[in-house]
Amino acid sequence: MSALTSKLKVMFRRPARGGVPVGLFVLVLVTLVVVAILAPLIAPYDPNTQNLLGRLKPPGSEARGVYYLLGSDELGRDLLSRAIYGARVSLAVAVLSVLLSGAVGITLGMLASYLGGWVEVVVMRLVDIFLSIPAILLAIIMVAVLGPGFVNVVLVLALTRWPRYARVAYGQTLAVSSQPFVRLAKAMGAGPFHVLFLHILPNIIAPLAVVATLEFGLMILFEAGLSFLGMGVQPPTASWGAMLSVGRNYVSSAWWIATFPGLCLFLLVLSVNLLGDRLSEYLNPKSR
């Protein structure tokens, strides 16, 4: 583990090619994570308290003793507070779905490659089938069956995305399996799970980390997209996607509703993507 942390240190010390220090994006990411965790302490107001006399107030205005720094929405709720709580939903869905799909995908991919035979055929054919349905459509049809809501969104995203990890884990395991240390471990009587998780996984974790980072950005967009379509986290829970959907309806009278949650979403995804890029450049120096 210490080898990994020292690698990470080297990676972040070097200034990025574009002149933009990676630290800036780490900062954005860390800030949003802290904001999400401490939401109840940071948010100036309750995100769901309606104030019908303060509907659609522009940023920097006041109504009935409530100061709207980023304006208010169609029910007079404070947009700043909702944006802060929205970070919670975005990050929670993304973290949980990446962990779940990663765990399932990596385990299945490694098993398929290591065991071979019918396990390999079944798992890899399943991967092909899942990947031949456009991801958003696959997620939508599952939401149509299961219904919307926080837990279902996480489940649906995990079910939709595990093949990405499985494919990478499969290929990487195949490459590592023939190496002497794996054969030695097997010869000394190590069982498949011991070999896979203690000998193979640590050696293939780097490319999987790149996939996970890129998937993390994608999961944030998927959650926002599903919530935007009304199939994600349900109201009144604050979600950036749902806020954008309201903002779409008030685009000519209240520009601020869509602008701020969109900006948060953009910055978060941009930071995650740039970190993913740096990670993959660092791990495959050839692509530089």
């Binding site: 090619r17 685009v251 979403l265």
Partner: peptide
Amino acid sequence: TNALMGFVLGAQSMPTFWSGILMIM
């Protein structure tokens, strides 16, 4: 080229629903 790369990276992280709403606006 760096500026162009920045534009490309930005376009890649832009949620379509936000860029759409901004254009409408």
